[in-house]
Each structure stands twice: as structure tokens, then as C-alpha cells.
Design a protein around this nucleic acid. Sequence first.
DNA 1: GTGAAAGCGCTAACAG
DNA 2: CTGTTAGCGCTTTCAC
Lengths: 335, 335
Amino acid sequence: MKPTIYDVAEKAGVSIATVSKVINNTGKISDKTKQKVLKIMEEINYQPSVVASALTGKQTNTIGFLIPDIANPFHAEMARSVEDRGHELGFSVVMCNTDGNLDKEAQYLEWLQRKRVDGIILGSAAQNNAIIKELIKQEIPAALIATDMPSLSVNAVLVDDFLGGYQAISHLTSLGHTDIAFLAGNLNNVMEKERLRGYKQALQEAGAAFDRKNLLTNNFSFDDAKRSMKKLIESGRRPTAVFAFNDLLAIGAIHGAKEAGLKIPDDLSVIGFDNTLLAAVNDPPLTTIAQPIQDMGRTVTDLLVKEIKGGNTVKQRVVLLPELVVRQTTIPPKI
Amino acid sequence: MKPTIYDVAEKAGVSIATVSKVINNTGKISDKTKQKVLKIMEEINYQPSVVASALTGKQTNTIGFLIPDIANPFHAEMARSVEDRGHELGFSVVMCNTDGNLDKEAQYLEWLQRKRVDGIILGSAAQNNAIIKELIKQEIPAALIATDMPSLSVNAVLVDDFLGGYQAISHLTSLGHTDIAFLAGNLNNVMEKERLRGYKQALQEAGAAFDRKNLLTNNFSFDDAKRSMKKLIESGRRPTAVFAFNDLLAIGAIHGAKEAGLKIPDDLSVIGFDNTLLAAVNDPPLTTIAQPIQDMGRTVTDLLVKEIKGGNTVKQRVVLLPELVVRQTTIPPKI
DNA sequence: GTGAAAGCGCTAACAG
DNA sequence: CTGTTAGCGCTTTCAC
């Protein structure tokens, strides 16, 4: 059997209360008994049960992390930084893949509560904020990452998507492009809408007109992006540049364009978003808008833990700024 | 306050024991009281505490998952499938990034035990099996994934690395290559050694000689792979094909080769390992040896859960077979 | 400084 | 069928 606090107490010739105090460094105990207890704990390799202490009202030092899909490099890198930071702060993180599915989300949330996690990071709650409201009502610390919920009082960290879109297009227009396609997803979320706004703004500032036909939607998959790019080009439309919603789609677009006979970047400049591993590894290396993924993960974790520890701290919304990373897929258009 | 079993009991006019029975579907209770209790639970939104029930000896329905690095696509895909399967079986999974660091590993292991996870999947325990022995001694269900521990009695799922190496090289020799570099990592683990064995075997069967100079090591990073490939070529050595330890390294090699002025696959055939997203997305799409990542994750999870539930079941070692996926980076050598 | 004792929310005999 | 009761391992007053 695993040793309990009673075992320690007995062998050390003290009461369990005393042992508890040395474990938690609370109350007053003489240095002598403290050492004695410590020694015994060491000897019998005693590990205090988190379960038992959680039952008495203490925290579980666990946070739940809801993400759409850990296999997606963007989310994986995020998860990595959340886990790292969480661990530094003494928390373990349980991951939950929601696939953006509301039922799964709700199910996980309930499950996490039953496990008494101390707080929850929502990496995907785009569609339904009822869920978050519930969380707030139950007074469970929560924090959003890369999800905007303007009407809610929750800690959140996001990236300035408008600026990201603006930066991407400004880079392109400064190179001389004016006919720029936007390879979006379903355009149903704030992120995309903001980037689109940035796109339009930059276009306008460059004196170029916005052409509705340059707006491509797809289901966020590599293959779909590839297909729709190919189709676009084969249909005769021929923008000189593409701005994709993320690196994966950008690379899909590149593949599609190549299949349609174009050369990258000679015939088509391409810019992505996220700056994941994919962008660096692509050939030619992909110009992209970098999200500060590390910082985002770190920051939400800090925010959440602060709320867990501090009780009623002021909620904040941290907006991180994206950054243009110029690599080799964007050049001036060939006339 | 969150409702407890007492609240339910009181409002339903029964004892807590009765409530407990309907929660767990144990014992015998009349359908009538059962419905009544169920109704109340619904009404006050009662969620049984996992913590409390764990304290009475029941399981926590949590499994720990130790991985070197979730940001690595191979591990991320694995994590995804472990999480999916775990969730299907009613378990949540807490992830732990070890970076292959023994201290971190030990620390996490202790932490997980204190949390009373029901079992642990080791995705990285390559170097020190003392840790696993300890786990076994403590009678904590454990399972290994993609890690060989020949001398231990643990559940494990692995892929036949010898076969993988053999398949890769056979494919290459059948195309006519005989001068094939092996871009490995540090060659310190069984996986690499097995693949090397496969490499040698296939080479020999093709009547080609093994040349020590074709053995390249690196620190498992993209940049390092790129650098060492470039250096090799510039040094005048010029194999007609490369077999890389994983897709990332393969792509690194491609970049290095290109920088050295070679064309892929015209001047150099390249084959990777894993068949991650990277391979599919690379341009040209990378020929690779596919590991059945999904199945591996699913299988370990099943194995572990069976052990958790079943008690003393017979341990097994499941060896999955890799598969050659021919894409566009391997062609016959130009003479 | 230290210990006795009352829970935390739930499960599992054991009675009835 | 249903209820009583004794813990699970730990924290936390409150006495001494």
C-alpha cells in the first residue's frame, strides 16, 4: 500500500496534524520535529495525495485545455507552451480535443468540472458563448485564447487580426500587387472577418479596388485549399498574389497553383498566417504573418493561474501583435 | 455551492446511499425512486465529484501521457489518437512534455501518481528503464509506445523498425540506387539501430556494399539535417539517395541538397519516415515509410485501459508494420 | 509547538 | 429495496 500521512505520523512519533503542517509549511513547528518528519517522508517515499487534499477544499493544480485539434501544428505549438508554462507554475494540463464540436465541448466541460480542475483554457468556443457564460456563473476560472468574445468578462489573449491582415496586404501592395486573392475559411468567425477588414483597408490605402471574386472560401483543409486555388486559376482569373488564412492553406494554394502550371513565387506570390513549422519547412520558405504562439500560450496560462490563485482580480484582454516574416514566396509581380 | 450527494438525497427524500446506487447503477432500487432521484439530479444539475469517489478507492478515469514534445507532428498525431480513444473509453488524458529529459520524466511520474492517475503511457523512456521498473513495482498500469524495452514485462506497441528500414532501402535499390546515405539522429536508441540493420540488410541483398561514410548523424533538428546534407554534398561525396530518420529530417536534407545545387528528385532521391503531415505537404510530396500513428495511439490506449480495468491480464507487445508510401521524391538514379 | 477531532463528498458493507 | 455507518487521506480550527 502507498504510505499515507498516518504512516508518516506514526513513524515520526507525531500527529498527522503536525505532518500536514510540515507538508504545507503552515503553522509553527520546531525545526527539530520538522526535520524528523521530513526525514521519514523521504525514507518511506511518501507522496501526499492530491485527491485527498483536493477533497478538503484545496486545489487540484490541474487545468483543462480545450482545443479544436492538437494534431494541427498551430494548436500543438500552443499546447506545448501552455503545458510548459503550466508545469512551471505547478499545474498539469489535461487536453481535450473538441473538433470545434459544441456537444463535445459541453461534455468535456462537465467532465473537467467533475474532476475539479482549477481552471479552464478555451482554445475553441467560437460559436457558442452560452457555454462560457455557464462557466462564469459557476465561478470557474476561465481564459480564452485566440477567440474573441467581446461581450463577455473573461480573461483572454488574442492577436490583432485586423493588423495581421493589414500587414500581409500592405507587404503585398508595397511589392506592387493589387490583384490579391484572400483564401479564407468559412468567414464565419471574428478572426477571419477582422483579417478581411485589414485586407480591405490595406487595399484601399494602396488605391486598389476590392474585388469580391478574390474572396475564396473553403473548409480549412489542405486539399480543399489546393483545389480551390487550382480551380480559380484554371477558370482564367489570375491574381498576382494570395493571402491565405493559415500556413497550411497557403501551402495548399501553392500546390494548387503549381498544378495549374504556375511558378511560385514568379507567377504568384503567396503569404500565409501563423508562422508554424510548416512555413519554415516549405520550399520555397513561406512568407507569413507570425502569431506569437509561445507568448500567447504563456500569457493565457499566466492569466488563468492568476485568476485561480488571486480570486477576484481584474479581468484583462491581452492583444498581442502579429509580425510580418518575409521569406521567399513573395516578390514583386512580373508584368 | 456545488450540489453534493446530500442535496440530492434530501430533495429526493431518500438516503445518500440510495443516491449513490442510482449514480453507479449498483444494488437494487425501485424504478420509481430511481426516476425520482434522476429527476432531482437533473433539476439541481448535480455532478458527482470524481475527487471524492477517487478517495474511496475508485478510479480517477485519468491517464497520464508522457511525450517528448507535443509540438512535433509525429507526437501530436499520436497524442490526438490517444486522446480520442481515451475519451471514447471514458478517460481524460493529461499530457506531459518531457523533452526526453530524465529529470522531467521522473518529476512528472511522481506528480501523476500523486494525482492518482489510473495509468500511464510512456512515449519517451528510451534511456532509463529504472523509471519503468519503479512504475511496475508500484503496480501502476503502464504502456509503452514506440519505445522498446525488451527486458521488461510491460504492455507496448511498436512498429517494426527493422522492416521499415528494409522497406525504405529496398524501394531505393529496386529503383537502382546503391549509394544511399542514412541520415540518422544520434544512433543511440533501438529504433535507429533497427532501421540501420534494415538498411544494411537491404543493401546487402541488393549486392551493394555498406559505406560507413554514408552514415550521417545529427541532433534531430531540421536545421542540422539541412546543414549536414549540404556539407556532405559540398564535400564531394554524392550519394544518389538519402534515407532520413523522419520526415522532418528528410525535408531538411532536401533543403540542404537544394542549397548545394541539387535538384530533387532528379539528382537525389529522398525517403523519409513517419508519414506525417509534413510529408504530404512537402513539394514535391515526400516518399516515406508510414507509421500507423493512429493505430499505435489507439492500440496503446486500449492496452492500458484493459490493464487498468482487468487487473492481471497478460501483458503483450504489439508490433505494427510500417508501410511504404511512394510519392514523388524517389526516382531511378540518373546515370 | 503540538494534537484531537470534525469534516470534505462519496462508496461499500451491513442491517433492516 | 432502502438506510446507517464507517472510512478514504488530508486540512483546519481549537484546545492544551
